[in-house]
Design a protein around this nucleic acid. Structure first.
Lengths: 380, 380
DNA sequence: ATCATTCATGAAAACCTTTACATCATCACA
DNA sequence: TGTGATGATGTAAAGGTTTTCATGAATGAT
């Protein structure tokens, strides 16, 4: 139970602080040392600046800057002196000053409705990896679909703290663009959920194609009565997956039975409710194609609770391949989203935009991969 | 398939750009307008600056700054004019300039070995919420336990891009402090994994107490032969939970059987392996207390595969309460980590440090809560 | 009426870079 | 030798804030 140590104390006796250096400079030049000099205001440990390095290396600050940013433009010998001075002072360039001057922060703001969502967090890894590789940092903003929080986060953009934006929200941040001609959009890329009615590049999985493949897999196992769980009027992702499902049925010459299409918002609870509803109505499929794994899990829970033998009596197919899909009993056959690559691709696209390049695609659709586990059985 | 729109084009005809304003100023003062004036260099849409606001309101920039930051210090009428000018220009203060001047960025860097870890991402929500509430932004860094990446991220600190640090790594970033007296530690707080041999405030769950409660719950259900799955020499968390387990046994007068303590690194795979090992050795417990839910899941998978009837034949207890714990069959009885509160508390502590306050506790231990589900049954 | 205070404001410095432009030396070529 | 070109470096101007100090007006006390 010892006390907390406060680390922000002043640090004294630093050999090459700015005050010291510049006083020296003035004295050498024969001027009177400024009052500032004796100051006790050395809080927060003064860090070495480019001036300190320049003085130590005996060159101008411009040369130091060049040695750092365009090494070819300075003579070998000079460069050597500069690098040595940098090492001795422990200099790091002040990112704030740099950003101020260059009008770019090398930061990307990521806006997501729920940072805790496992589907999101894995994409985040890809985003972060790619950004960091290119010298960018990522700032994260958790909006919880709250309009005021969305607007609030825009301060990062408008105050130059972030150069670009990655959107998981499926719509422009509230208070942006949509409400008039004024607000110019910053470089941004939408991930997972495309942004309707706005010209925002999109990176995500090919939901239509993935759902088609999934459904075809069920068909290939002999299923003809296949339910789709998770229809939603509002969510684009759900709509696309339903389309893929319909396409596959049509391709196999199976008529769509409207009673086999159940509403759902993609939560586990909605999956459970959907299954229960089917039992109540007593129109039963042989297989459930669920809009996502969370939904599929709900269906499995419901069927397990009714003591069905899975997958013998019912097959279940998911979409996403989230972490626990392999641990459920029966382990879930599903479509795997290449989350890491989605993150990388999105960041890559955004950085291209930032660099002023004009990327070829307005959309990057990545293929979902069929993962066969134990929740789908052959029938008939 | 239309082309990507590039948003960074110059914006022309902006009424109150800086160039315009300052040229006017110079002309009024009777000086010659500088060459800069006619420039076409209006890239990236010039944003309104504090000078624009000042000019429009007819006051000095100092007053505008004060009106914004210390409103009580400016006269009501002046404040009104300033706020109106701000509204008309759409001014936002440039965070870079502000940070440069104030030597603080209002950013917190979060260093985590795996951003995708669900246990982490939920804490992140708490961290982010609290930070955002206090006007801070969070930057995330995914280290993957890679020393070079850890070092790399320190540039955010040393270049003033972040004011403080939240550590999930369980050790100081490589290249920091440990290798000598030089590197002064920035304000930081460790979460989840305490930092050994360093005076870093810690926020996390009370693992010892939680494990004790968990084990006592098993004992209260009549279990006497209780295995501990997940002993680890290197991980502090595992060690503490094992201690809690031992304490509970001791409290109940049950001798610790060393064959009941199985190594494990906390992964699902390690849980499965541990259970298999016990069957091979044929020293079987009536209950498994697992170091975390992932491990417990492995145990459950193993037992399910052997077609045991759970929890009738074996009870399983986890720790953490991660998302799928309620979905496994049998659903997992476990200790719930107050993840959101951990995040909030950690951020709160860090911001206290940053404000120069001296918090009372060096450690904040939050209580884990027993969540009773279906994986533990009464025995005997 | 005079003086001391308080209050509101402005001028200018400081924060630390990057970079356009100027300078100066060197070298090649006519 | 003169002329250009080339290359390395320095000077100084932004970039947009916050904040110290100075100024001047208004207020209150004597």
């Amino acid at each position: 139970m010892n006390d907390v140590k406060v680390y922000t104390e002043a640090k004294e006796g630093k050999p090459l602080g700015r005050v010291w250096r510049s006083a020296l400079h003035l004295l050498e030049a024969g001027k009177r040392a400024p009052v500032v000099c004796g100051a006790l205001r050395v809080q927060h440990q003064k860090l070495a600046t480019i001036e300190d390095v320049a003085a130590l290396a005996g060159v101008s600050i411009a040369t130091v800057s060049r040695a750092l940013n365009e090494p070819t433009k300075v003579a070998d010998e000079t460069r050597r002196k500069v690098t040595e001075a940098i090492a001795r002072t422990g200099y790091t360039t002040n990112a704030m000053a740099r950003s101020l001057r260059m009008r770019r922060s090398n930061m990307i703001l990521i806006l997501a409705p729920d940072v805790g969502d496992p589907n999101f967090s894995n994409i985040l890894v890809g985003l972060e990896t790619e950004a960091s590789k290119r010298g960018y940092g990522v700032l994260i903003g958790n909006t919880q679909n709250d309009a005021s929080r969305e607007t609030d986060y825009l301060r990062f953009i408008s105050s130059n703290q972030a150069d670009g934006l990655i959107l998981f929200t499926g719509h422009l941040p509230y208070g942006f663009g949509q409400d008039g001609t004024e607000g110019r959009l910053p470089p941004m890329v939408a991930v997972n959920e495309p942004v309707p009615n706005a010209d925002v590049p999109f990176v995500g999985v090919d939901n239509f194609e993935g759902a088609r493949i999934a459904t075809e897999h069920l068909i290939s196992q002999g299923h003809k009565r296949i339910a789709f769980v998770g229809r939603s009027g509002s969510r684009e992702v759900n709509r696309l997956r339903e389309e893929g499902y319909r396409k596959a049925l049509a391709g196999a010459g199976i008529a769509v039975d409207p009673r086999m299409i159940i509403d759902g918002d993609g939560t586990t609870e909605s999956g459970r409710a959907a299954a229960e509803l089917m039992f109540v109505r007593d129109v039963l499929p042989t297989a459930f194609f669920c809009v996502n794994d969370a939904t599929a899990l709900g269906v499995i829970i419901s069927l397990n609770a009714r003591h069905y033998d899975l997958p013998r009596q019912f097959s279940i197919m998911g979409f996403d391949d989230i972490s626990f899909s392999s641990f459920v009993t029966p382990s879930l056959t599903t479509m795997k989203q290449p989350r890491h690559r989605i993150g990388e691709a999105a960041m890559e696209l955004l950085l291209q935009l930032l660099a002023g390049e004009k990327p070829h695609e307005q959309q990057v659709l990545l293929r979902a991969e069929l993962i066969v586990r134990n929740s789908v059985a052959r029938v008939g």
